[in-house]
Simulated scan of single mutants.
Amino acid sequence: MDNKQKTTIADRSRININESYEVDYWSNKFGVSKDKLKATVQIVGTSVKAVENYLTK
C-alpha cells in the first residue's frame, strides 16, 4: 500500500495515474480533465515537467 505520509522528491516529480488522489491533484493543478491528464502521461511519461511542458505548448 502507498504510504501517503512518506513522500520523497521522486514522489513529487512523477505522476502516478493509478492513484486517484494524484490524478485529482494534477488534473486540477494543470486545469485539464482526468482523461486528458492520463492521455498525456501515456504520451510523454510520468515526469511532472514533461507533462507540464506538453500541456503548455
Rank of each mutant, 00 (worst) to 15 (best):
Ser20Asn: 07
Ala10Thr: 12
Lys34Leu: 12
Ser47Glu: 11
Asn28Ser: 13
Asn3Met: 11
Val48Pro: 14
Asn53Ile: 13
Ala50Thr: 04
Arg14Thr: 07
Ser33Gly: 07
Val32Cys: 04
Asn53Arg: 14
Ile9Trp: 07
Asn18Leu: 03
Val51Gln: 09
Arg12Trp: 10
Lys4Met: 00
Val51Gly: 09
Lys57Ala: 15
Phe30Cys: 01
Val32Met: 02
Lys6Trp: 01
Val32Ile: 15
Ser13Ala: 10
Gly45Arg: 05
Asn18Lys: 12
Ile17Pro: 05
Lys49Arg: 07
Thr56Val: 01
Ile9Pro: 09
Thr7Val: 15
Ser47Tyr: 02
Lys4Gly: 02
Val23Asn: 01
Lys6Met: 08
Met1Phe: 01
Asn28Val: 03
Thr56Trp: 02
Thr8Ala: 06
Thr46Gln: 15
Val51Lys: 06
Gly45Gln: 09
Tyr54Val: 01
Arg14Tyr: 01
Ile43Gly: 02
Thr8Arg: 05
Leu37Cys: 06
Glu19Ser: 12
Glu19Phe: 14
Asp24Arg: 10
Asn18Phe: 04
Ile9Glu: 14
Asn18His: 09
Asn53His: 13
Arg14Gln: 11
Thr40Arg: 02
Val41Glu: 10
Lys38Leu: 10
Gly31Pro: 06
Asp2Arg: 14
Gln42Lys: 10
Val32His: 07
Glu22Met: 08
Tyr25Ile: 00
Ser20Ile: 10
Asp35Ala: 08
Asn53Gln: 13
Val32Ala: 10
Ser27Glu: 10
Asp24Pro: 00
Ile9Leu: 15
Asn3Phe: 11
Gly31Leu: 11
Ile43Lys: 12
Tyr54Asn: 13
Ser27Gly: 01
Ser27Met: 03
Val23Lys: 10
Asp2Gly: 09
Glu52Phe: 05
Gly45Lys: 05
Ala10Tyr: 08
Asn16His: 11
Val32Tyr: 06
Met1Cys: 02
Ser13Asn: 04
Arg12Asn: 11
Thr56Gly: 00
Val23Pro: 05
Tyr21Glu: 13
Val23Ser: 06
Thr40Trp: 03
Ile9Tyr: 11
Glu22His: 03
Arg12Glu: 05
Ala39Thr: 09
Lys6Ala: 02
Thr40Leu: 00
Thr46Gly: 11
Lys29Arg: 08
Glu19Gln: 09
Lys6Asp: 12
Trp26Val: 00
Ile43Arg: 15
